[in-house]
Structures are given as C-alpha cells and as structure tokens.
Design a protein around this nucleic acid. Structure first.
Lengths: 340, 340
DNA sequence: CGGAATTGCGAAAACGGTTTCGTGTTGACA
DNA sequence: TGTCAACACGAAACCGTTTTCGCAATTCCG
C-alpha cells in the first residue's frame, strides 16, 4: 500500500506543529483563519484522511460491533445480520461478522480474538455444539470482563447479559393450535435433537397446545431428524399413522415433508396440512406455498444492536440485564386449510 | 467496560519496565527465567491480553478485510460471504461486512470509512445504482491510493484491479442451449433492466445460443422486469405467444414464472420448461425443483480473498491486475425435459 | 587481576492522532 | 509605561505495544 499522508507530513511540509494541524483540521478557534486555510487546502489536495487506528487507540473505542453467528447461508441469520447492520450504521457503528459453524472451538476462538479490544461489544447466537456441551465459561469470562454482550435467539439463562429471543413456545403453540382449529386431529412434529434450545421450546409449545385441546402427546408422532441420515426414511413411519398435520421446526423440513407427502399421493393441505418455522424464500415460493411461523429476524437484529449500543454508550449507569421477547406470527399460506 | 490490564500495569506492579514485560511475554532470551516466570504468572492470573488496536497501529496492519456487498438476504451473496470468511479465517484474517443496499451513496460512504486504515484490503461487488450512474471515481481513488481491492461478480473494466467473475455469458448460453436441445423452439427471457451487468451478460449468452441454432432473437420474447410493478402482468404477454421455454435470470423470477404457468394450466416442464440462475434453496425445494445455472458463490468468495491476501502480503512485487472467471454449471432438475 | 564478553534489563522512539497546558507576541487600557 | 487579556501556536503527554540501543553488573578468559 502507498505511504499514506499523516498529520506529521503536513506539519513538516507547512512548517507548523502537529497540534496546529490537528486543530486546524477540526476548525478550532485557536488557529488563525489564514493558517487554517493553508492547512485545510493542503490536506484536501493530498486527500488526507485521519488514520482510524490511531483514533481508536486514543479514544479507546472502535465503533465496531462483533457479530458471531452459527451460520450465514440461512434466511433467518442473514436477516438478523441485515437488521444489525442497518441500525448499527445509523448509529455510526460497523460490524465484524464471524461464523462459528456450530462449532465450540470456532466460537471460542472468535470470542477470544474479538474481545481483545477489537470491538466495543458483541452480539452472539450460540453454536449448537456449545449448547450440547453446556460449557459457557468463555461467555462468562466475557461478562466478567464487562464486555457488552447481547445473546440472540439461542440463549442460556446462566449467562448474565442482555438477550433477545423469539417466543418459540408461543410460535409452536400458535402453529399447533391453528392446525387443530383447521380440523387436524393427529399432528406430527418433525424436529431436531432436543439439545437445540429453540427446537425444545417449539416442542413445548406444540405439547402445550395439544394438552389444552385434550389430546395426548404421542412420542411416536415426534421425529428428531439426524441430518446425516436420509430424511425420508426417518419420517416415513409417521405417514403410516393417519396423520393429518405436520409441524416442522424449520422450512426445509417442512418443504421436504411436503415433497414426501406428494410422492405418497397425499394432498397438501387437504389430506395433510403442514406448517414450518422460518419465513424464508422456500415458504414463500414453493408450491403449495408454506404456512409458517415468522420469527422476525430483522427485528431481532435491530433490537439486539439497540440494546448493545445502549449498554456501550451508557457504561456508567448500573447495569441490569434485559431480556426482549419477540413474538412470532403465523403467516398463513397454502399448505394449511383455513381455520374454522 | 472494565479497565483492562495493560503491560504498563504489570510493569508497575512488578517493578520492572514495560520493555521487560513485553519481552518476557514473548519468551525472549534477553530476560532471565526467573523474571519471565514471574511476569507470565502475573499476566496469566489477571488474564492479560495484548490490546489489538495498539498492535495494529504498531504493525500497520489490521488483519481485517472489508467486504461490501449490495445485499445480504440473498443466497448467492451469503454464500460468497461464507467463502470469504472461511479462507480469511484460515489465513488469520477477519472480515468487516457492509451492505450498500444497491445505493451509490451507501457504497461511497462505506468505501470512505473502510479506506481509512481500518482494513488491509477490500472485496466489493458494485451496487446497481453505481452501475447505472457509471460513476466509479470512488473506486479509482481507492486504486490510486493502492489499497488492495478485489471486485467480484459485478465488475467494470475501467477499474484496474483484481476481479473474480462468473462466466455469465457461458451460463446463459449453456442454459439456452440445453433448452433447445431438450426440444424447446420458442424461448422467452425474463430478465432485469439491462444496466445490471450480469443480466446483460446472461442475455448475451442467450442470444448467442439462439443465433448458433439459427433462431432469430425476438424482442417481444424478452421481458425486463420492473420490481416495483406486478410481476404477473409484466410476463403475461409472453405466455400468449406459444412459448415452450423460459430462461429467468434469477431463481425468484423462475419460481414466479412456474407459479404463473401452473395457474394458466401449463405443465412444467412438458408444456413449458424453465431454467433459472442462482442455485439456491428455492430451486432445490420447490415443486417442481428448478433446473438452474449454479454460480458457485462459495468458490468466488474463496478465490477473491485468496487474490486479495496475496496482494496484501506481497506488496512489493509489481502488480498486474488478474481476472478469474468461474465457470457456471447447469444443475438439471425437474423443471426441464431431459436433453436429447 | 584486568579486560572482554555475556547477561539482564531499562530508556526511548515509533505507530498517528488528540488535548492540555504553557508561552510569546499583540494590542488595549488605565 | 506597565498590566492584562486575547490571540496563535507549540511542547509534551497520552493511548498500548514493540524494538533498538545502551548501560550496568556479572562472568569468563588469559
């Protein structure tokens, strides 16, 4: 890279001190008009830009927010990033994004690097592996160093920090309740292994809705998908049980269920209704389009960054961790019958 | 944030100089074993971490790569980010991502901020508005400041820097050629306004394939979609012309065309075959699944960051802009008939 | 035992800015 | 003519780290 022009260069060229240059560039009243003109003209001519690193070091703030997410090629997470970036930018911040790829090690590593003063605060959604291991010491270290932290979507209660979560229980409940009210009697749940916190919550909502409608939850109607195995073989047995509704914990599972149902000559939604989570492109554009629980990732990102920046900029005030819950809404499309 | 422990603190507490601490922490032979032990123990105890900003300022490098993309909630772009982040991380870099939202102003602003020494280099995909305006002076400034820059996907020849592009002409050609060989006679093109460089290239490929097969390109079969207007009314007229094939420049247009075709009682692929660009989730999961041209965003990201880091780390060698072309492949699915 | 080599450490400059606190020169006013 | 304020600018400290160089004190060797 070309040697960049600094305040020192200008000072030397113009025979003044660096303090004078600094002040002149900020239009300080201490400096005479004449000198200011000269310095500003020179700076403009040579396209002087103050070095950000120097400023950050001096001000002890980077105006940078670290974001660590498990994945990126995923509608929900990319929507969150969009929300974060938008509000961050408005408030003069930029974002550094890293991906843990659901791995504890990468998450740990990212956290370590970013907490070295590179960023003013962090927004994190915890990796699945970490949730499984239940080892949150790296987060607790962060908290004890008093580095502003906001946890989103996948959170755990033992980490004392700001949080923004989706009302997953409510989402599961609403979806199941809608299926029941549209006439479904026997609803299967297609989910992930239970250590994934959001899936566990959605399952709670599912079970709550069943109970409230006097239906016994039936373990044989619940499939915990192992992504390493073939999807269809894992779900085939639920189709043998006269089900007329499926709640899937994400839109991919929903789409795959619909596809399988069609192959088996079931009509969606009349024979079997399907609801998924994540209001992404699949739900919108597949045929039939899929009724789903929208989690409002954009809003989540916005709220998270607002909480974080508040925390960063009001350092002094005594801090009480806050927890925002974003309610999830049912977007009704073609994969369900209309509710009575 | 809590006052972080610095080398100075350690030095003062232990009654040594900062130089000694610095050397001790790097296990320098200049320092006696005894002193090293003492200092390292203290540093460990109080969880000392060197301040990144200070290091960056001293080393004159940030190990940070700026990434500016037009959008994020988009399969292709998020795949690119994934590729960039993966390779960057391997090589000890992190990424700062910004989004121009297709706006010239935001792009300009982001470029300005990031070129202040915040990053060691930049990877950018140009905003549509900028392509339309044809004002690339902000990029040229970057080049003349010799800030390492790699342009991806949407590029223009007048900016002298490294580039990674998709073979869009080839993609358009392959897709059209495939449609022709599967028996289509009259193929419509559903595209964006022509200032979007990639669309223009895909159209070139489309036209080239037609010409090679002795078919006259027919302007009435080409629709430039205005996203602000209703999609269906814009495409309806091509369906009145006995078409039997559609090439869409992205997967959303493809999905919408298929949906419209179904509504009008056309069978896809037998009455009308459809091919889209972007091998995203829609193409994979909708029914029928959509044959499409895969652009390999992941690979593009990887290549871009490799070129960039090479440029950053081999500053001295004389620099000749390179241009990588990533070939695009046809992923054949259910929305097309099999080729003869 | 004297000079040289080695060891162990500190002072200071450097990275690029900002900011506080002088200080010398004016000019006004008593 | 002496005093004081205002003006215009510079010196130096500071942010946290690395690194070169120099300087004692000790050890080694002849």
């Amino acid at each position: 890279m070309k040697q960049k022009i600094t305040i020192k260069t200008i000072a030397k060229e113009l025979g003044v001190s660096t303090s004078t240059v600094s002040k002149a560039l900020k239009d300080s009243h201490e400096i005479s008009e004449e000198t200011k003109q000269k310095i500003q003209a020179y700076a403009n001519l040579y396209n002087y830009k103050p070095n950000n690193l120097a400023l950050q070091l001096r001000n002890q703030k980077t105006k940078l927010i670290g974001v660590i997410l498990p994945q990126i090629v995923h509608h929900f997470f990319s929507t969150i990033i969009k929300g974060i970036e938008e509000v961050a930018n408005e408030k003069g911040y930029h974002i550094m994004v890293c991906f843990s790829k659901e791995s504890y090690k990468k998450e740990y590593e990212n956290l370590r690097v970013l907490s070295n003063g590179s960023v003013d605060g962090l927004i994190v959604s915890i990796a699945n592996e970490t949730l499984e291991n239940k080892d949150f010491s790296h987060f607790k270290d962060l908290v004890s160093e008093e580095i502003p932290l906001v946890l989103i979507d996948r959170v755990v209660s033992e980490i004392m920090c700001d949080k923004v979560v989706v009302d997953d229980v409510g989402g599961g409940y609403k979806a199941t309740d809608y299926l029941l009210h549209s006439g479904c009697k026997k609803i299967a749940l297609v989910t992930t292994p239970n250590h994934v916190s959001v899936s566990a919550l959605r399952r709670q909502g599912y079970e709550k809705a069943l109970i409230e409608n006097y239906i016994k939850s039936d373990a044989s109607l619940i499939v915990e998908i192992d992504d390493d195995k073939d999807f269809n073989t894992q779900i085939s047995h639920i189709f043998d049980q006269d089900i007329d509704g499926i709640l899937a914990v994400n839109e991919i599972y929903a789409a795959k269920c619909i596809r399988y149902a069609k192959e088996k000559q079931f009509d969606v939604p009349n024979d079997i209704s399907v609801i998924g989570f994540t209001d992404g492109l699949i739900s919108e554009y597949s045929t039939p389009s899929i009724t789903c629980v929208a989690q409002h990732g954009f809003l989540m990102g916005k709220q998270a960054v607002e909480m974080l920046i508040h925390h960063i900029e009001n350092d002094s005030e005594d801090y009480h961790p806050r927890r925002n819950v974003i309610s999830s809404d049912l977007i009704v499309r073609e994969s369900t019958k209309s509710s009575s």
